[in-house]
Nucleic acid binder design. Sequence first.
DNA 1: TGAAATGTTGGGGCG
DNA 2: ACGCCCCAACATTTC
Length: 462
Amino acid sequence: MTPRLQPRQMVLFRDDLRTMDNPALLASCDAGSTVAVFILDEQSQGIRPLGAAAHWWLHYALISLEDSLGKLGIPLLFRRGITADVVADLSRDYAPQAIRWNRRYGHAERAVDAQLKVQLQAAGIDAHSYAGSLLHEPWELLTKNQTGFKVFTPFYNALRNTEVRPPLPAPSAQAPIDGTSLHSEKLEDWGLLPTTPDWAAGLRNTWTPGEPAARQRLDEVLESITGNYVNHHDRPDLDGTSALSPALRWGHLSAHQLWDELSRFAVDSPAAAEGATALRRQVAWRDFCWHLYYHHPQLPTENLRKEFDDFAWSWPKDSPEAAHLVTNWQRGSTGFSLVDAGMAQLWHTGWMHNRVRMVTASLLVKNLAIHWRVGEQWFWDTLVDADLASNTANWQWVAGCGADAAPYFRIFNPELQAKKFDPQGSYVAKYAPLAVAPVVDLKQSRVEALESYNHMKSLQPR
DNA sequence: TGAAATGTTGGGGCG
DNA sequence: ACGCCCCAACATTTC
């Protein structure tokens, strides 16, 4: 008879849906027979519920993870609810010896996990957390003054001078365990997929969530990085980005894996090294956003630069005109072809080219004078790759109220941007072939934006 | 990871 | 030959 082991080790999955380079998973499997749990917690204090596109991604990512873990003999249980309650149930039902997880760095998530540790220790269950998501812990990579970095360039320089630990292997397969006593909710019952209307056709055609597809995409990126990443990653018409952002968001790939692979190009051809460095900067930017969020928990909701509290941004509820502008922006009916193409790409595929994100965001917060949080919430709901740190830090960056933000007066001209970055108009033709009338006069709204900025400055104490 | 206004320079047309 | 103007092509400044 095959030995049937009752798992005594439990590992929690959250934003780290992978089997390779997963410190908590590896440690758990080293410790003994392991069962994995994914807890969908959108109810704990301060947790922001996932957006609709994220729900879509999560559904398929969990199916993929269940498959990958299954091949290692590790069952994956699905539970939904307040983490503390769910873990209390799990502890009662299975009496695990230890529960492990990779750390999260969001403010509310940290509170949940800290509380969890206390709760488990009180129950006599070992609780271990690991560093799996960021290249460095935010409390470890600091300025000379022992504070978090507020400016990207010195952050990046500091990061480059550090050792990043190499990625870890996947655990080896464990002996079969008796799954009959394990209780999992049914993923289908969570209602993560859209029904009426089913808006996810474009997402299905664009993406394959999960670790195997992410690895495959990584291989493609590494093969082509020698050529044109440096020249093409800024070109929405050329599809020159890595498109790995969802894989990083959901942890199908870790930053360590990407960093490690890219480091191999350092001594190769100059072109390859240049491309690898450019992509590394993007990975570093993600870390920077999380560090920023860690050191500034108010990042998602408050202007980092407080003088922007006096900026006269509108909200949709303020006036029918503002509401109308927001609706047109969301629907991709602004009349500016590159913006409308970007917003259409976002809606149809759950993703938008980064250059176009900047242009669409600039139009909303500057030309349309809408608060960045309105745009941030739309991106949160529609992007498959949105995380709280990157999304909010980058919106604040565009809006000018971020720590290391673009100067406010850097206002994109969407028509010029289209000429520069979509010279043949093929990106526009693909996503927004029908032109509509502009919702705003570019020249005038630009002048008004600068006037608002000056007005805000005039309100500051001298 | 701007854009527009303003300043400067230099070539060519022309009287 | 020279001054003058125009203006493109940059460069600098300002927002």
